[in-house]
Design a protein around this nucleic acid. Structure first.
Lengths: 123, 123
DNA sequence: CAGGATCCCGGTAGATACTG
DNA sequence: CAGTATCTACCGGGATCCTG
């Protein structure tokens, strides 16, 4: 179980970071958005989330499950079928996530411009 | 300058993660919220942001500056005085950040409960 | 099919010491 | 005061191999 010892295992002293601790791992957001459209199988997630390894996908899903944001359904078939779905709690996170996403759509180019300008100056 | 090679140096293939790349470093959010109340000196930030080292504070501020979210003001005094302030672009990020923060206030206990329950089951 | 178990690398964060 | 420089430890993340 020591694989669950992610970097946010310990509760943050500053509550401003708590939401980010829930969400800020590399694959969490992508998986999260993938589940927004409904219940999905492990293999489908693996296909949709380009570049993710089995290890990281599993680890990410476990963490989301542990945090109560995602529910895991195992069906006793052969071969096994496992599906994942956002919980009601998980769905409440969609709104703030969308707010962040909209900010990105609106301002990410500004960030990129700022980076270029900064790198130009300090070169 | 190779210290600026943070993990989000390379543009993410998935735009859902971009906003988080801007914000999801360990100290970024804390510093950001600290600057919400106005322009502050380096030493004051150092005091307010409990646990941060000079290295990480400087690194975080540089990154925020590079992304155009924070402005840096150097005054030619002895000893030197440096102040940091949110830019207009930086201020536009406050709204989505606040949304995340409110989610935390409302639901973080649920997350903690879910974790306890999960750890209980899988023990 | 859906993972578990290992091995390994690179980078981030921390500690410490030094400086204009 | 506001950093820079260096060294080190740790761990996230990838690759690979194995399994009920």
């Amino acid at each position: 179980m020591s694989n669950l010892a992610f970097h946010h295992e310990v509760e943050s002293p500053c509550h401003y970071r708590r939401a980010l601790e829930v969400v800020s791992n590399k694959w969490t957001v992508v998986v999260f958005y993938e589940l927004e459209t409904g219940k999905k199988r492990y293999s489908d997630l693996k296909k949709q989330v380009v570049g993710v390894t089995q290890k990281m996908l599993t680890q990410t899903l476990r963490q989301l499950e542990r945090d109560g944001l995602v529910a895991r359904f195992v069906y006793p078939t052969v071969p096994p079928t496992v599906e994942y779905e956002l919980t009601p709690l998980g769905k409440t996170l969609m709104e703030p996530m969308r707010a962040l996403h909209q900010w990105t759509e609106a301002h990410y180019d500004d960030v990129l411009d700022a980076r270029r300008a900064f790198d130009q100056e300090t070169k």
